[in-house]
Amino acid sequence: MSNEIELIKDPGLPAHVHRSTDTDPKAAARAERQVAILFGLSALGTITLIYSYIFIKDDVFVFIPILGQTHLQQLGIGLGMALALFCIGAGLIHWAKTLMPDEEVIAQRHEFRSEDEDRSEFIKTVKEGASAAGLGRRPLIKTTLGAALGLSALSPILLLRDLGPLPKDDLSKTSWKAGTRLVTDPGDRPLRPEDLEVGAVAQTLPEIEAGAHRSLADIGKDAVLLIRLRPEEFNLDAERLSWTHEGIIAFSKICSHMGCAVALYEQQTKHLLCPCHQSTFDVTRAAKVIFGPSARPLPQLAITVDADGYLVAQAPFTEPVGPSFWERSS
């Protein structure tokens, strides 16, 4: 035994130390008063709440350091409620900590594993039950039950089918057609090239009939950003250059990454930045992705002017706008 390693021993639960409230009646009375004061403060909080709700006018704002201009009624109701609730809690806990018993108690745990006898009987019951049902001996029942259960799971899926229409080619199409005028958003005013100075940006949508309703789904596909540069600043091939008009270039405003509006244009660098995930597109190179997670340039809309001198689309978008999807071919 002598060469066996001896471990340090458990000294057992430390002796209980009495609190002052256990031994000194004065301290106990003091603690009782403190608890009562906390409950009293809580009542004060509720009164503040009621007063603020009824008597503080709805249009009163006060300046409070750090918070700034603050709606007084809202603040009064909130602070009253906070005080009312917090003090009930503080009172209860103070009571428990100072006046309720604080002697630690030991309870025994039971092992979760049942007695061997119960356990083996349980296992036997399960086995007997399983064999009484005879699933193993009757493969026909097993197979057909499995198939029936599997098939029945299809019905909830099927019943959800009418949640929405099939996509068809909806994701690939926009409202832009050859000759559609570009109108400002908001305002719905058609634009002439001279309305845009060099360096300017405009958000546009396809023109619709007066009084017609424009759905958000349409805006989500049709939003187009116009940017005017000096024509010599472009670095485009001949075809893409022919899609611009007097230095005005048009891109889909819907990000090719996840569909946010590509709303930030940096005039100095001529970069478009999507504020959601920071995909950055170079306007001079047909919105080529120069940074960030997007894998495709923003689709470019070919534009020109019509007989009245207004900017129009030369043709529809040549590719789907917005984020990628499985059926997209490029």
Partner: peptide
Amino acid sequence: NVVGYPLMPVYMAKAGGFFFIVFGVTAF
């Protein structure tokens, strides 16, 4: 074993009180 305090009354008061404290802080 488990060494601690009994549910009634200590933990009822402490846990109940703590609910009000969490609610109070959230309201604040």
